[in-house]
Amino acid sequence: MTAVHYFVEAENLSKRFKTKDGELTVFENANFGIHKGEFVCIIGHSGCGKSTIMNILAGLDGASDGALFMDMKEVGGPALERGVVFQNYSLLPWLSALKNVTFGVRARWPQWSREQVREHAYKYLQMVGLGDGAEERKPFELSGGMRQRVSIARAFAIEPKLLLLDEPFGALDALTRGNIQDELLKIWSETHQTVFMITHDVDEAILLADRILLMTNGPYARIAESVKVDIPRPRDRTTIIHDPGYYPIRNHLVDFLVMRSKELAGGPGAEREVKAETGKPDGYVRVFPAEVNPARDIEALPSEQAAQAANQ
């Protein structure tokens, strides 16, 4: 592995919880990086610790072992340079949609005038398709999709260096999800934020991401693969399925989730590829996820899928 300087870098990140019967290792030795401006998704089954990784990235939770760096500085706690979109929206119910966004904007730029804050917040609400009166409504008067739009606007409006999305569309119906995915793609292409997103949805990950991290089942989960999504942008939900790379990637991901996430699941004595790094103390081992590019690497797939992919 050549020394690449990632914008965000996780170094042997582990999380253990104390339980009645001893220690439970949720995941261990997670190593991954995110480049500036990159859109990275992470997929894995429930319980593999995706949300815990997200909380550590946000600074809301601490790792048991290992370290996390952003912009060459260690992440020690929550900060405005990392915006979070929570799964359950987490809007403040006593504030209107606009006030929920200005809440973040005012925290980010306390020296701004009231008018400036309002204008900035309103701009981002319009970017997610809210405005014309909807901004004065309270969250309980908004549909689930609109609430998540407000939550996305709040996160984008503070212009964070890293945007963290925790299954943002998990609770939405398919039609709404599609629409908001489009909005998200649009804003992302305008702002080129660095994004890290948790999802359960394989198609969503292919549509949005530059790279997809695959996690094995927990406990002792690990990040097994880093799958490159080699499909040109701008992408569109209706045409992306015709890209020759689409099905090879999709099949690779589904195969991983159905079969290999279980097989590759670690245990306390799981074998690890030992690779000594220069300039580090003895015994220091870092295992990076295997990098794969199913779209350009058809022969690397299991034969059955390769045949299927070739037929596309």
Partner: peptide, 24 residues
């Protein structure tokens, strides 16, 4: 969740008390 919103927005304890905890 609401406290986490306050934390990710780097609100001071006093501002968290007045803008998040008190209304909640």
């Amino acid at each position: 969740d609401w406290l986490n919103v306050a934390r990710t927005h780097e609100l001071s304890p006093l501002r968290t008390a007045f803008t998040v905890i008190l209304p909640a």
